[in-house]
Simulated assay, not measured.
Amino acid sequence: MDLREELPDDREAVRGLLLEAFGDHGAVVADLADTLRDTITPDSGLSLVAEHGGQVVGHVMFTRSLLDAPRRLVDVQVLSPVAVTPGHQRRGVGSALVRGGLEILARGAVPLVFLEGDPAYYSRLGFVPGGEQGFRKPSLRIPDAAFQALKLPAYEPWMTGTLVYSEPFWRHDAVGLRDSET
């Protein structure tokens, strides 16, 4: 398996992967990724793919959001989405993508990475519930345990406050959990 930056030619393969991996929620996630991709610049954000046998089998994206800290706004990254094709899950592909992205971000000026996700999975990668670290979630719809953060070397103790998601997360209604319709 090879990990590399996503290329323009990967766009359709990544979209198909997200549709497959997220099932009923796949269209929202794929549309969110399409919008977020356009916000990534060489200095802000990252989109990686895992390739096996010439096929894209995994994807992770890190994009810029803000931490509303008492001193000033702080540029941070949000890990979302991450996906692996069902046939390649439970083989370390997702973990390798996340770790690879975090290593790249840690070499830069990124102080924090936030996400919404399963604490049992992401705690193995160093993420800790955000509330336990003095951070406030951007929506009450995010379960406390799912709101997680990882401090990188550029983090400074004064960097506390509220995560402010970038606009695409709100536009695509991809924040927290909605009540299910019956």
Rank of each mutant, 00 (worst) to 15 (best):
P81T: 00
V29T: 06
D24T: 12
I142D: 07
V113Q: 09
L97D: 05
H59K: 02
A96H: 12
P119W: 04
L73T: 13
V78N: 14
D9N: 09
D34Q: 12
Y165E: 03
A154P: 01
G126N: 04
L7C: 09
E181T: 09
T162W: 05
T85K: 03
G23K: 05
R107I: 00
S65T: 01
E20T: 10
V60Y: 01
G130A: 09
F147E: 04
G108M: 04
G53K: 08
R91I: 11
S44Q: 13
P86C: 10
V82Y: 03
V56T: 08
L48W: 04
S166Y: 08
R124V: 02
Y155W: 15
T35P: 02
L150I: 14
V60L: 05
A149T: 04
E5L: 14
K151Q: 13
E167D: 11
R90C: 10
L152F: 00
L97S: 06
M1V: 13
G87T: 02
A146Q: 11
G16D: 10
A146S: 13
R91V: 09
V113E: 09
M1Y: 11
F147G: 02
L177H: 04
D31N: 05
A120I: 09
D31E: 10
A33N: 08
G131S: 10
V74C: 01
H25V: 02
D38H: 15
D179C: 07
D173H: 07
M1C: 10
E116M: 15
A50I: 03
D38T: 15
A50F: 04
V128H: 14
V93R: 05
V57Q: 05
V78E: 14
P168W: 06
P8S: 11
S47M: 10
R71F: 01
K137R: 11
V98D: 01
K137L: 08
I104N: 04
R11H: 13
K151W: 09
R136K: 11
Q55E: 15
F147D: 04
M1G: 12
G26M: 06
H25D: 03
Q55G: 13
R4L: 06
D34V: 00
H59I: 02
V164K: 15
V74E: 02
L177T: 05
G161T: 02
G108C: 00
Y155P: 05
S44C: 12
R141P: 11
A120L: 13
T162R: 14
R178T: 15
S47F: 07
L115E: 03
T162H: 06
E132L: 08
